[in-house]
Design a binder for these strands. Structure first.
Lengths: 136, 136
DNA sequence: CAGCATCCAATTAGATACTG
DNA sequence: CAGTATCTAATTGGATGCTG
């Protein structure tokens, strides 16, 4: 069992409560890079460099940080091959695989609804620009 | 159609590309407060104060900011009743409802797998503490 | 009640240089 | 190749005071 401050959580978890540990887990998952890393690993193990190239715009530092957090929380495994040059493989664990599809669904939604969102955004911005000053 | 810098996106969206607008949308969704707000609105419209009480730990500023972003992107609607004192209702739009279940799945996963994650975390931290210094 | 404005602290993220 | 370490810039977030 996992513990936090000596307490155990069997059920009744509620991410709406700030003190509930599920809030921390939600915070790990509710992250752009986590979503993309896990999605990439859904297709099988990848090396550090492969991930970096796949996740356009991520810096080496952020990738390292994201991977460490995911490893620490048991969503991915890290395998080091003591070769020269070194080779490190990252792979989703069983636990990780169980969440990948959920995260992927969110990413796919984003890709599918781009135009709905951009339309709404344009309309909102245009309305805001045309509106009289709230009060002057 | 939504546009960004005069470009239109019909298909082939890819959140793995930094310049793809779906990356921005993913960033909006991949957020702790977005997840919780949308989840709360899945049960029907709520007032500002109701949301604030429901989302334990959120500040007024963050709630306002989150709600504005969601409204701008068309996921929620905002209805002002010009009464005294004022009353403002927030409700998921059709577009918003279409993503709520996906986000809820992520939150529920967090709540269900607390112990798996905490176990992994404990094991990782213990291993790290026991490990010899990487190199001194 | 439902905010907005402001100031400040803390966290996050990028750039750069270096290593087994 | 796969990082670590460090410094700095930018963003986020919290606290407080005020308003229609």
């Amino acid at each position: 069992m996992g513990t936090i401050d000596g307490l155990r959580f069997y059920g009744g978890a509620d991410a709406y409560l700030a003190a509930c540990p599920s809030r921390q887990i939600l915070d790990l998952l509710a992250n752009k890079w986590t979503m993309l890393v896990m999605g990439a690993l859904g297709g099988g193990p990848l090396r550090f460099g492969e991930l970096r190239r796949r996740l356009d715009g991520i810096t080496q530092k952020m990738l390292t940080q994201t991977l460490r957090n995911l490893e620490r929380d048991g969503l991915i495994s890290r395998t080091v091959y003591p070769t020269i040059p070194p080779r490190v493989d990252y792979a989703a664990t069983d636990l990780g695989h169980s969440v990948i599809e959920l995260l992927k669904a969110v990413r796919v939604w984003s890709e599918k609804h781009i135009n709905d969102v951009l339309d709404a955004r344009d309309a909102y911005d245009e309305r805001a620009a045309r509106e009289p000053q709230p009060l002057a």
